[in-house]
């Protein structure tokens, strides 16, 4: 398998083979995090800069741990506290960072397309860690990896995504990736947050029950309080009344349904605590897999890896090809 991509900007249009290759690579990296010494020298001498123009803890920490377990140097720039406040443009900030010759720039930004803008102007690899309401590709990859560990065949799987579809980059990345690998996607949310155009991409409904019926996976999206100010919903309470995922909904899903959430959770708002903590929940697996996925993305982009999976494993020393660890509970 060739992986000749220079950047990871989004998953829309990414072919199935490439997505599966990314997942395979990530799966092979999981074992590193289970070692006593959680570090391989693979990316020694590489520098990864994370520029976060939006508050985020978990994604940044996940990238940082991933980079460090691969021995890359990792530097964080929290932009709201630095140049953006001084009126510097995004492009100037990025050019300055680029002049310091990092190998990769991980960017999170409130404007859709910000990662595309940088990719057009910078020499280093650009990894989109969330751009406005557009995409969050590593999140979707970790979601797919988590699904595949429990349900190895994507073909024919029914995945319901519930919540603020309009503003969710997680929904978009998952929608494109899941469709590419052959899963059936259903979208559910209040009409105000589920634009009519969604129907061009997937079955869309305002009825959570209908979306969840017979589903293999239910992904719950975080609802933000700003949506109330924007008059998308009258109140968080009313949102919860119709769209909070509860056990009664899951009764309609497949018996082995998986419940996922990209975090951070609003307990009792979009997901009932009993569901978040219940037996179907794989939320913490998602977090664990986030490390492996980001290790894989950094590895493939920074080594310009063109080798087959077998070679990937060789390089990691001692992971026999074909032996993939299955994480289960």
């Amino acid at each position: 398998m060739e992986f000749s991509r220079r950047h990871l900007l989004g998953l829309e249009g990414m072919p199935k083979e490439e997505i599966l290759f990314l997942l395979d690579t990530a799966a092979s990296f999981k074992e590193i995090s289970d070692r006593d010494i959680k570090k391989v020298p693979t990316l020694r001498g590489k520098t990864v800069v994370a520029a976060f123009f939006e508050p985020s803890t978990r994604t940044r920490v996940s990238f940082e741990i991933a980079a460090k377990r691969m021995s890359a140097d990792f530097v964080t720039l929290s932009a709201p506290a630095s140049s953006a406040a001084k009126g510097e443009t995004l492009l100037d900030t990025a050019r300055n960072l680029s002049a310091m010759q990092p190998d990769a720039l991980v960017i999170r930004h409130p404007s859709a397309g910000a990662a595309h803008l940088l990719a057009r102007h910078l020499d280093c690899a650009v990894i989109n860690a969330g751009d406005g309401a557009h995409e969050h590709p590593t999140q979707a990859l970790l979601d797919l990896l988590t699904i595949r560990e429990r349900k190895p065949q994507f073909e024919g799987l029914v995945v319901a995504i519930v919540g603020d579809i309009l503003h969710s980059r997680v929904a978009r990345s998952n929608l494109h990736a899941l469709r590419a690998v052959g899963a059936e996607v259903r979208l559910a949310g209040p009409r105000t947050l589920l634009p009519r155009e969604c129907a061009a991409f997937a079955f869309a409904t305002t009825d959570v029950r209908e979306a969840v019926r017979g589903a293999d996976v239910v992904m719950v999206l975080r609802i933000q309080r700003e949506r109330q100010v924007g008059n998308y919903i009258p109140s968080i309470e009313e949102y919860a009344r119709y769209f909070c995922l509860r056990e009664e909904h899951l009764a309609e899903a497949k018996p082995d349904v998986l419940v996922m959430h990209p975090g951070p959770l609003n307990r009792g708002v979009e997901i009932a605590s009993s569901v978040a903590d219940g037996p179907y929940s794989v939320i913490l697996d998602q977090v664990r897999n986030g490390i492996a996925v980001r290790m894989a993305v950094l590895y493939l982009l920074l080594t310009g890896a063109r080798e087959a999976m077998a070679a990937t494993r060789e390089q990691l020393q001692g992971i026999p090809a074909g032996k993939q660890r299955r994480v289960g509970r």
Binding site: E12, A112, G113, D131, G132, A133, H134, E135, L166, R169, R172, P195, E197, C198, A200, F201
Partner: peptide, 13 residues
């Protein structure tokens, strides 16, 4: 414009 493309690109329509 609000439509398929604004949804796809995550831009306000």
């Amino acid at each position: 414009n609000e439509g398929v493309w604004s949804f796809r690109l995550g831009l306000r329509g």
